[in-house]
Structure formats: C-alpha cells, structure tokens
Amino acid sequence: MVAEGIPELVYYLGFITVNTLALVVILILLVSPRDKKPTPVKRAPFESGQIAVGRGRTRFIIQYYPYLLMFVVYDVVAMFLFAWAVNLRTLGAAGTIPVLVFVSVLLVPLGYALHLANRPENW
C-alpha cells in the first residue's frame, strides 16, 4: 500500500501546526508585553551597538555560487540512485549497468565542476 500512513502523517502535521500557531498567537496577544511607543533605537537592526549603516539587504558577493549550481543538478541524481537502490536485488545486472553508465557520465562533469569550484582564484 503506497498510501499507508499518509493520513496519519497529515493529521499529525496539521495537529502540531495548529497547536504551535495557537500557542504563538496566544503568546503574542496575551503574554508578551508590548511597548506602545518604541523608540527608534529600540527597533533599529542589531549591529553590535554600532549605528546601522546602509540597507539590511546589502549586495553580498556569493563566492561559493558554483556549489549551489551543482546542488541543483546532483540532488536530482541522488534521487535516481534511491530508485535504483530499492530495487537492487530484483533488478540484478540488467538494472545495474545502465545506472553505472548514468553515474559515470555524471561524475566526470562533477569532478571538473569541483575542480573549478575549489579554486579560490575563481571566486
């Protein structure tokens, strides 16, 4: 049965979501004290006591960007390997050889991408 356990999972997730949200709403409305007229200093973004300079969402150099690109590709590949792994004993060699070809074709560009991503002068 593929659908076994899914109603319980949805029930559980719904139960904890509703309860946690109810708790948060109760805490916000009833328990946590609120300052009616907060001073600008109080609501300023925290920067270790310094006066905040510039915008919060600054331009930020994402040096490790190639790793994220690889994640987008190879996360899906990992999922394919799951499908192969669960049927390993029933498939036998007929199912394993295509997977080997598939993985080895994908590992070569991964190695090259890692070679480029691991070099700080490319960041």
């Binding site: 973004p45 920067e47 905040a52 919060g56 969402r57 930020f60 790793y67 994640f71 990992a78």
Partner: peptide
C-alpha cells in the same frame, strides 16, 4: 529580518545545508 548579520547567517546556512545534503 532585513538586517546584515541575519542575512549573512541565512546565506551560510543555505550553503552548508545544501552542500551536506547530497
């Protein structure tokens, strides 16, 4: 949060968790 340190922390978390997921 629209503040600098949370933003940097969020990006770091993204890199770390995606990198270790595979």
């Amino acid at each position: 949060a629209n503040s600098k340190y949370p933003f940097i922390g969020g990006l770091r978390s993204l890199f770390q968790q995606t990198g270790y997921e595979i």
